[in-house]
Lab assay of single mutants.
Amino acid sequence: KLATQLLVDLAEGCHTHHFNSLLDIIEKVMARSLSPPPELEERDVAAYSASLEDVKTAVLGLLVILQTKLYTLPASHATRVYEMLVSHIQLHYKHSYTLPIASSIRLQAFDFLLLLRADSLHRLGLPNKDGVVRFSPYCVCDYMEPERGSEKKTSGPLSPPTGPPGPAPAGPAVRLGSVPYSLLFRVLLQCLKQESDWKVLKLVLGRLPESLRYKVLIFTSPCSVDQLCSALCSMLSGPKTLERLRGAPEGFSRTDLHLAVVPVLTALISYHNYLDKTKQREMVYCLEQGLIHRCASQCVVALSICSVEMPDIIIKALPVLVVKLTHISATASMAVPLLEFLSTLARLPHLYRNFAAEQYASVFAISLPYTNPSKFNQYIVCLAHHVIAMWFIRCRLPFRKDFVPFITKGLRSNVLLSFDDTPEKDSFRARSTSLNERPKSLRIARPPKQGLNNSPPVKEFKESSAAEAFRCRSISVSEHVVRSRIQTSLTSASLGSADENSVAQADDSLKN
């Protein structure tokens, strides 16, 4: 292990032709098999893994070397290190390495390699500790012929580059190093199909959405987006994914797998022009299946994007999809995704031109529960009313008269009656009930004795009459309010007539 670390330190600071010789020695160290011998017992696995620490030291050392060589000349050094790393990870899946030390190597290698970024000039870069990406002036992410390196360097940008540029090249004859992302992409596909350690798979799935944002990485080298989509959909639809995973937390289920895969599918929607129609349908189907899991909100957001990006695919699945959405409970976490999906859909009339009455009724059935102001915040309630109004205007004229009683009944049950079921009123009724029952229970537990009763009969009569009056008032709060309003209006009217009579009498006395 110490000798391997010494080789790594020497290679990191070497800029001459001896660098390749040092890498040859490190490569021989990495070539050791990580498969346990067949006769190895389970209690000896930890000791055997400790004997392979030099392999881990070599791989982690290459990660440090690549981070240094990416910004220094010659660029061919970075290319050689990158290829060695990718080849080593491929061996893991070729020979099915399952030892804990092998999983640790893959975890740290993917953690580093999935941080690679590219700008519009195809320059590769890595983020620093502050998250700012520094791009290399010597390494690009696409394949290029050595003699055409300078031509590639002087080509115009596709868009303004992001991030601070690296140091300027030493001279005009500098050759750019090619670090094609397709090599890593193929290893990522192998990981999605064969990885057995949940920690490694979770890391890859968590980092892929951010990497897919940099389309330069994908399009400048032959990366098959179709295969990526197929691998992701197979993970969700195939039963073998959960069987092969180990190291998963207790209670791990298909729902947890959906939570990890759906963000990658959402990021892949922007590549729909490069996906086969069959793959697009598979993607939409997987998102529909996710509606029954805890990732339902993410799936609804993804389907909203699909309705804009892939209208030809979503239009066929939309009638059944809208009916499925009615089975989702009206909760605060689902309110905004569902209502925004319906609001977006209302502005795309070509998608729902074939809707029948059942689909329009489903839209109103989804939106009406969110009009309850005692359960949802003001934004959700306003958005629900907006969706109902928009869809009522957009639905066909023959359907409107049939939906009017349905909508008014839903609004009455969710908006008007919600004020009668407020917690304050319920607590008031509970308190009044307890007050009504309390005197009775006290009389049963403690019967009054005439000799020891010091309270006069008049006081008892007053208290009983007050309790009886309170019971009468607490029967119905709404009736009490109505009666008080009527009494107030009658009182004001009587006072007004009394004032008029007094004024008339005063005038008569003055005349006399």
Rank of each mutant, 00 (worst) to 15 (best):
T72Q: 14
K56S: 08
E151V: 08
S104D: 13
C191P: 00
R80D: 02
A78K: 01
Y97C: 02
V216M: 07
P137N: 08
G149H: 14
L236A: 07
E151G: 10
F135E: 02
S211V: 14
P239K: 09
L245N: 02
R123W: 02
V55K: 00
V64R: 15
E243P: 04
S182T: 05
L126Q: 03
L184V: 09
V140H: 08
P137G: 04
C229Y: 02
R117F: 01
R134M: 05
G131A: 05
V187E: 04
E250Y: 07
I218V: 10
P222T: 05
R244T: 05
P160A: 09
R134D: 05
N128L: 07
L62T: 05
D226H: 04
V140I: 09
C233E: 02
L70D: 01
K69W: 01
S76M: 08
S237Q: 11
K193M: 12
G177Q: 09
L73T: 10
S182H: 10
K193P: 01
K153P: 12
P160I: 12
G149F: 09
D142W: 02
E210A: 08
C233N: 03
G156N: 12
T220S: 09
Q227T: 11
E145N: 09
S87A: 09
S96R: 11
V140W: 03
K193H: 15
A102F: 02
C139F: 15
V200W: 00
R207K: 09
P157A: 12
K129I: 10
L232E: 00
L116M: 14
G61M: 00
L228W: 01
N128S: 05
S196A: 09
I105T: 01
E250C: 08
L184Q: 03
F185S: 02
L158K: 13
V204I: 05
I101M: 07
F135V: 04
D142K: 05
A231C: 09
G177P: 04
C191T: 04
L60F: 11
D226N: 11
G206E: 13
L232V: 08
E151T: 08
S178I: 13
I105G: 00
L208V: 03
S136D: 01
R117S: 05
I65L: 15
L188Y: 04
I65Y: 01
R186G: 14
Y97K: 01
M235C: 03
K215A: 04
L60I: 13
G206C: 08
R106V: 01
V225C: 06
E145F: 09
L245R: 02
L60S: 15
H92A: 01
S211F: 05
A75D: 03
S49V: 06
L184D: 01
L124F: 02
P180K: 05
S182I: 04
R175I: 08
Y71I: 02
L236V: 07
I218L: 08
K94P: 01
V59G: 03
C223G: 06
Y82N: 01
I105P: 00
V132P: 06
H77C: 05
V64Y: 06
I218Y: 12
E250F: 07
G125E: 02
R186C: 08
T72D: 07
Y71V: 02
K152G: 12
L228Y: 01
P222W: 02
P127V: 07
L232N: 00
P209Q: 12
V55A: 03
S103E: 10
I89C: 03
G131W: 03
K153N: 14
S224I: 04
P137D: 11
L192M: 06
I89S: 00
S120Y: 12
G131I: 02
P249A: 05
K240V: 12
C223N: 04
Y138G: 04
L126W: 05
V204T: 02
L184E: 01
G163K: 08
F219S: 10
T79C: 14
P249C: 11
H122D: 02
C141S: 07
R244M: 05
L176R: 12
G163D: 09
L192K: 00
E250M: 10
S178T: 08
E53R: 03
W198A: 01
R213L: 05
D54Q: 01
P180Q: 06
S104V: 11
V133S: 06
A58M: 00
A118L: 02
H88K: 00
Y143L: 10
S230G: 12
R123Q: 05
F252N: 02
L126F: 10
S51E: 10
L73I: 11
V132Y: 11
T162L: 10
T162H: 13
Y181G: 03
L184W: 05
Y181R: 02
H88T: 02
K69Y: 00
Y143D: 12
I105C: 02
D130V: 09
V179Y: 02
P137T: 11
L184N: 02
R186Q: 11
E250Q: 11
V55Q: 01
A102H: 03
G251R: 06
T154D: 12
P100N: 05
V132M: 10
E83P: 01
I218A: 04
P164V: 12
E210V: 13
G156E: 09
S159M: 10
N128V: 06
L91G: 11
G206Y: 11
I101W: 02
E210L: 08
P164G: 11
L52N: 11
V132A: 09
S237P: 03
V64F: 07
L183Q: 12
K56F: 05
F185C: 02
L183W: 09
A173Y: 14
L232M: 04
L205A: 01
R207A: 05
L99Y: 03
E53Y: 04
A102V: 01
K69H: 05
L121F: 10
T154L: 12
P180D: 08
E210S: 07
T57N: 05
S196D: 12
P164M: 12
V179Q: 02
A75W: 07
H77W: 04
V64I: 07
K56A: 10
G251S: 06
V133A: 05
R207D: 01
C233V: 06
L183R: 12
V59Q: 01
N128W: 09
L212M: 05
L228A: 01
L63S: 12
R175N: 07
Y138Q: 03
S150G: 12
A102M: 02
C191Y: 00
R106F: 00
D226E: 13
S104E: 13
R134L: 06
R106I: 00
Y143F: 11
V179N: 02
G206K: 11
Q190M: 09
E147P: 14
P137L: 04
S49G: 06
G163I: 12
L60D: 14
P249G: 11
S136H: 01
T79N: 06
Y93P: 00
E250T: 07
D130F: 08
Q194C: 11
E83S: 12
M235H: 01
E147M: 11
S76N: 08
Y143E: 10
V204F: 00
L116F: 07
R246D: 07
K69E: 01
K202T: 04
C229W: 03
L121D: 07
Y93N: 00
V64L: 11
V81L: 06
G125Q: 02
L201H: 01
L63N: 08
K193I: 09
K215V: 02
T79S: 11
D197L: 00
S234M: 09
V204M: 01
E195T: 00
S211A: 12
L91S: 13
F252E: 02
V55E: 00
P137W: 03
G238A: 10
T241A: 12
P222K: 06
W198Q: 02
F219I: 10
K56P: 05
A173V: 10
V200Y: 00
H95F: 10
T241V: 11
L188K: 00
H88Q: 02
L63R: 12
K94F: 09
L242K: 04
K193G: 10
I218K: 02
S104Y: 09
T68Y: 06
S155A: 13
Q194L: 08
Y181I: 04
F252I: 11
V187R: 01
K129N: 10
L85T: 04
F252D: 03
E243N: 08
W198G: 00
T98W: 07
S230N: 08
D226V: 04
P157E: 13
Y93G: 00
Q190E: 11
L158P: 10
C233T: 11
S237C: 10
P180N: 06
I89Q: 00
L124W: 05
R134T: 07
V225T: 05
K202C: 04
D197V: 02
G163V: 13
V55W: 01
P137F: 03
L115G: 13
I101V: 10
H92G: 01
Y71N: 04
C233D: 01
F219Y: 09
T79R: 12
G166A: 12
S136Q: 02
S182A: 06
V187I: 13
A50V: 07
A58E: 01
E145V: 12
Q194M: 13
E195D: 03
S103W: 02
F135R: 03
R186A: 09
